[in-house]
Write a protein that binds this DNA or RNA. Structure first.
Lengths: 154, 154
DNA sequence: ATCAATGCAAAGGTTTTGCAAAAAT
DNA sequence: ATTTTTGCAAAACCTTTGCATTGAT
């Protein structure tokens, strides 16, 4: 069971198993593919644990990132976001994002098309790649449609 | 001449040509390939214009971004950075970064290997890509050498 | 009993904003 | 003369930290 694995990971690092940590794990585990801010997690957590503090959320996501249970990502809108990743989905190295410039929605996709690029970088500049991040900006299908209609309406 | 083009861009948008704007443009234009924070630009600007305010830097870089003279990039270290790009170097769509996890230096490189990826994204999810950003994390040549030596020393 | 984790509030850092004075058109 | 831009200070914002209390081992 998922939760026991997590408890062992905590113990192995000398960290304690707390209700708050289990709750945040649960919140993240229930939402694969979502990109939650600390505030998002805080609001969800308060439903089950009204006395929880925002600082605890920040400290807990840091623990989860250190344990590679979740990944920290940024879409440059002012706050850090967290998503299930790492060990969980084996997608750690090949998980990318397409961000709609109009509605702000984020679409995830997989791909390992960067392998050749990384090899080239290694060869030419001696840079050893350990991880990568790809963000595509543009317009999603829905927004393209809306924008076309706005165009027609004029 | 470069500066005249910029002045026309400002006028065309109904914006005024000011010493501060010309100064920030000059600072950026003299440093292609560098990734300056607002504070960096502020410090450089004060040398020629001691009375300039940090708020002016922030407002000016926003203008330059809107005019596609510079690009805003983030290496997730807490502050936004700005670099010459856009029209200037025609590299807008194919300019990427390799960030060393040890020394923090950023290496830029060009590449259009994402074209096929973007086409695939467009075909499968109907997402129209207008821009993209690739960040590689890893270790630069120098740091690899240092880390090897540290290993040997033990 | 010991040591880590929590919650709260305060502080931290970057970036934004309000406003009167200054500068550009 | 009008309108934008500036500089300053204050505010806003997300995030981190200090510390006494609570909770886990």
């Amino acid at each position: 069971m998922e939760q026991e694995v997590f408890k062992d990971m905590l113990r192995k690092k000398g960290l304690k198993v707390t209700n708050q940590r289990m709750l945040v794990l649960e919140i993240m585990a229930e939402r694969p593919g979502e990109h939650l801010t600390a505030e998002d997690i805080y609001d969800l957590a308060k439903k089950k644990c009204p006395e929880i503090g925002l600082a605890t959320i920040y400290r807990t996501v840091q623990v989860l990132v250190d344990l590679s249970v979740i990944d920290k990502v940024s879409f440059d809108d002012g706050f850090a976001r967290y998503e299930l990743g790492g060990l969980e989905s084996e997608s750690r190295h090949h998980h990318h994002h397409a961000i709609c410039s109009r509605c702000g929605r984020v679409f995830s996709f997989e791909g390992d098309l960067l392998d050749t690029l990384e090899q080239a970088i290694s060869d030419t500049m001696g840079f050893k790649v350990t991880d990568h991040e790809v963000k595509l900006y543009g317009y999603c299908r829905d927004c393209q449609k809306i924008m076309e209609e706005e165009q027609d309406g004029k």
